[in-house]
Amino acid sequence: MRALISIVFALFMLAACQSAPIGSSPMEPATAQNPAMIQAGAQPGVADPGSLDDYKLGSGDKLRVIVFEEEGLTGEFQVDGSGLVSMPLIGEIRAAGQTVRQFEVSVADALRGAYLRDPRVSAEVLDFRPYYILGEVNRPGTYPYISGLTVFNAVATAEGFTYRANQRHVYIRRAGENEEQRHPLNSTIQVNPGDTIRIGERIF
Score class of each variant (00 low, 15 high):
residue 2 R to S: 12
residue 6 S to Y: 12
residue 13 M to V: 14
residue 19 S to M: 08
residue 21 P to V: 02
residue 28 E to W: 07
residue 31 T to K: 12
residue 40 A to Y: 10
residue 45 G to A: 05
residue 47 A to H: 09
residue 47 A to W: 08
residue 52 L to I: 11
residue 53 D to V: 13
residue 56 K to N: 04
residue 57 L to E: 01
residue 59 S to Q: 09
residue 64 R to I: 10
residue 65 V to N: 03
residue 68 F to K: 04
residue 75 G to C: 10
residue 76 E to G: 09
residue 78 Q to D: 14
residue 83 G to D: 05
residue 86 S to C: 03
residue 93 I to D: 00
residue 94 R to K: 15
residue 98 Q to N: 13
residue 99 T to G: 06
residue 101 R to E: 13
residue 102 Q to L: 00
residue 104 E to G: 00
residue 107 V to E: 07
residue 109 D to C: 07
residue 115 Y to R: 06
residue 117 R to S: 10
residue 121 V to N: 01
residue 123 A to M: 08
residue 124 E to T: 14
residue 125 V to E: 05
residue 126 L to T: 11
residue 128 F to M: 02
residue 131 Y to S: 02
residue 139 R to H: 10
residue 140 P to H: 03
residue 143 Y to F: 15
residue 147 S to Y: 11
residue 148 G to P: 06
residue 149 L to Q: 06
residue 153 N to I: 06
residue 161 F to D: 07
residue 161 F to T: 03
residue 165 A to C: 00
residue 171 Y to S: 12
residue 173 R to I: 01
residue 178 N to W: 06
residue 178 N to G: 10
residue 180 E to L: 07
residue 182 R to S: 14
residue 182 R to A: 13
residue 183 H to I: 09
residue 186 N to P: 07
residue 191 V to N: 01
residue 191 V to I: 15
residue 193 P to L: 09
residue 195 D to S: 07
